[in-house]
Amino acid sequence: MSQLLYDLLSGNADHAAAFRDRFDSVQHSQTPDAVTVCCSDSRVLQDHMWGNDEPGHLFTCSNIGNRVIQRTASGEAVSGDVLYPIEHTMTETAVVVGHTGCGAVTATYDDLTDGLDEPAGIEHCLSVLKPHLAPGVELLPDDIERAAAINRLVEYNVDRQVEFLSNSDDVPDEVDVFGVVYDFQDAYDGRRGEIHVINVDGETDVDTLRTAHPEIESRINRLWAY
């Protein structure tokens, strides 16, 4: 047997022992408090970043680029992964979670500026992101360093995903939509692993957000006011 698989199963045994009684109330249904849309990245600890260890609390989705957008035969729509808890489990909070140094944003930036040759599956994902990030690439200063450009586009991407969710007729008005960035690269003024709020229901102005939400003032930050 693969040693890695053995180690994973050993870790799962510890998990099962610790969580044995935590599934009692959610065995037959779920009413998660929030749906989070994270990037599929091994450095993004999707539930652990929130300190969550309760089954049923968060409905966690992930894909490269933390996309809420899905292409359908009739055009772009909110991804079914994201829409399911909103439509069927009474979830009224959605959180789009970008992260510093995002590989999907980097690849989209490179594809828009130089062109890339990626396998079809990856190219499909990038093709969903490209039309939404292209205006942001045009707004970047000419002299900006690459890492700084990527992290600004991470914010821009989160804003576009929040905008798409907020504007969708499939998402009820009472659903709160937040945009945040998970920072493990010291890009923001904070500790590694902290989450920074950059968008609340489409509002992106830092001063306005801090005035409206003084209880989290120190966690409201942006790198880019474009």
Rank of each mutant, 00 (worst) to 15 (best):
M1C: 09
Y6H: 13
D7F: 07
S10A: 12
N12C: 02
N12Y: 14
N12K: 10
N12W: 10
D14W: 00
H15E: 02
A17R: 14
A18E: 14
F19E: 10
R22V: 07
F23P: 03
S25E: 14
V26I: 15
V26G: 05
V26P: 02
H28T: 13
S29T: 08
S29P: 00
T31C: 07
T31K: 15
A34Y: 02
V35P: 00
T36N: 04
V37W: 07
V37C: 06
C38Y: 05
D41W: 09
S42L: 05
S42Y: 03
Q46V: 10
D47N: 15
D47A: 14
W50I: 01
G51W: 01
G51P: 05
N52L: 08
F59A: 13
T60S: 15
S62P: 00
G65L: 03
N66G: 05
Q70K: 11
Q70C: 11
Q70H: 14
R71M: 12
T72R: 13
T72N: 06
T72H: 13
A73T: 12
S74A: 10
G75R: 02
A77G: 04
L83P: 08
L83W: 01
P85Y: 06
I86S: 04
E92M: 11
A94L: 12
V95T: 05
H99N: 11
T100L: 13
A104D: 04
V105Y: 07
T106W: 02
T108G: 03
Y109W: 12
D110C: 01
D111M: 09
T113Y: 00
D114T: 11
G115I: 03
L116Y: 03
E118N: 08
A120R: 09
E123D: 15
H124M: 06
H124W: 01
C125E: 13
C125S: 13
C125Q: 14
L126Y: 02
V128M: 12
L129I: 15
L129E: 07
K130W: 00
K130I: 02
P131L: 06
H132S: 12
P135C: 04
D142I: 00
A147D: 14
I150N: 06
I150W: 02
I150F: 03
N151K: 04
E155P: 08
Y156V: 04
D159S: 03
R160C: 06
Q161E: 14
V162L: 11
E163P: 01
E163L: 05
S166M: 07
S166N: 13
S168F: 03
D170V: 03
V171P: 11
V171A: 13
E174R: 12
E174N: 15
V175H: 07
F178I: 08
Y182R: 04
D183H: 04
A187E: 14
A187Y: 00
D189K: 09
G193Q: 05
E194R: 08
H196C: 08
N199G: 03
D201V: 02
E203S: 11
E203K: 13
T208D: 14
T208A: 15
R210V: 06
R210G: 09
T211F: 00
A212H: 05
I216W: 01
R219A: 14
I220F: 09
I220D: 05
N221F: 02
R222T: 15
R222Y: 04
A225R: 09
Y226I: 01
Y226P: 15
